[in-house]
Design a protein around this nucleic acid. Sequence first.
DNA 1: CGGCGCCTTGAACCAAGTCAAGCTCTGTGG
DNA 2: CCACAGAGCTTGACTTGGTTCAAGGCGCCG
Lengths: 227, 227
Amino acid sequence: MRTQTAIRTQFPQSSSNAAVRTFVPEQTLFGSIELAGAPMSFTKGAEIYGEDEPSDYVYKIVKGAVRSYRILSDGRRQIEGFYFPGDVFGLEAGDAHGSSAEAVSDSIILVVRRSTILDTAQRDSDVATQLWSCTACELSRARDHALLLVKTAQERVAAFLLDLANRFSGNSVELPMSRQDIADYLGLTIETVSRTLTQFQDNAAIELPTSRRVVLRNRGALHTLNS
Amino acid sequence: MRTQTAIRTQFPQSSSNAAVRTFVPEQTLFGSIELAGAPMSFTKGAEIYGEDEPSDYVYKIVKGAVRSYRILSDGRRQIEGFYFPGDVFGLEAGDAHGSSAEAVSDSIILVVRRSTILDTAQRDSDVATQLWSCTACELSRARDHALLLVKTAQERVAAFLLDLANRFSGNSVELPMSRQDIADYLGLTIETVSRTLTQFQDNAAIELPTSRRVVLRNRGALHTLNS
DNA sequence: CGGCGCCTTGAACCAAGTCAAGCTCTGTGG
DNA sequence: CCACAGAGCTTGACTTGGTTCAAGGCGCCG
């Protein structure tokens, strides 16, 4: 069961599954905090934070993409989710991060002190509610992700593509992440991801103009797969 | 991939994976609400709430056990988690439940109006924090659960047993749930669960005095499996 | 134009699923 | 008190979806 990659520290040079019942309160969280922190640049592959490091900051993506992941003791990597512009990540109730985060591509990210948000929430119950909603939204995503992992390879890949397309609200999606990233998110191997994509192309469900671009041709076909 | 059971309405006759980094703020939530709702009885198999029903109540188990689950469109069932005495469940940020909940065995459950808790949180920032922590704790569990689902059958079953033993803090665990429940939680079939358990018994890692009782004989062996 | 990541494809293999008995425990009625 | 029925669990034999191992192709950058 060497589904995941071994640790690959490609160093420095330095989409999570659509929750049907997802609500999106994240947008407002940062808005309500007056000074919306410093924008920082991260080059492709750069670590944003590591597992067990103190969770002193909360992040919001302006541009680029981020993966959040955990490494199992035997070296396998499980990607918990992908984050895209507008998404907030790194918000934890505990004082330490439960997973690591890296830039999937060159990214610009707003960074805010967690204590600032927490202090505000202490005084302003609306901000407290937003904090809660943001975590609840992540919970919903995590459960959808777990649901994905008991399905067939076809269902997983189809769900992944549909989720991305929804998030970018378009039929043509540029994949910022590698096949390995997709595989580690879906709990499959790169080979299976690759084979499944070509299979979808053969079924005319999608088109692959390049390996990093997917055009959905038949959403219905993908949806019915998505059991 | 008929991993899960088809819908089995066994009607009325009427453990989630150990989060290493789990904190347990749930205990206090109900304590801080003055009138801690009505205790209700549910017989084995009784539905407590259904997916998409309004989430008007929050629940805390006094006695018994509860499973939370979703049914996929093709009839497979995915159990998201098990809850035991002291655990809070059914708390949602949205107005509708994202999953169903049933009593695994005859249970007594404290029921509190969600609006009561929310109103209190509006005024008392400590309660608001507890609300958030409770959801964050569920998030942690959900992510651990997802992590489980990419592992081998042996690793999943071992992790499940260790989790239960931790929760009940003992080496001897009475399983309130059926093999089918365990299978649907771990994303396996009953046959695989059964085979893996007997295999552990053959390895002297556990003992199975009856099919519903497990005695951990060699936690280390189970842990190393748990990659 | 050559080297290197990344992706695709093929063939063989294996862990877990499926199908099919058979066993065990429990409760019920004769 | 025993026999019988049924649900739940185990075990065996076979199948299969996805992994593994191994080439080979493609595109990008120096």
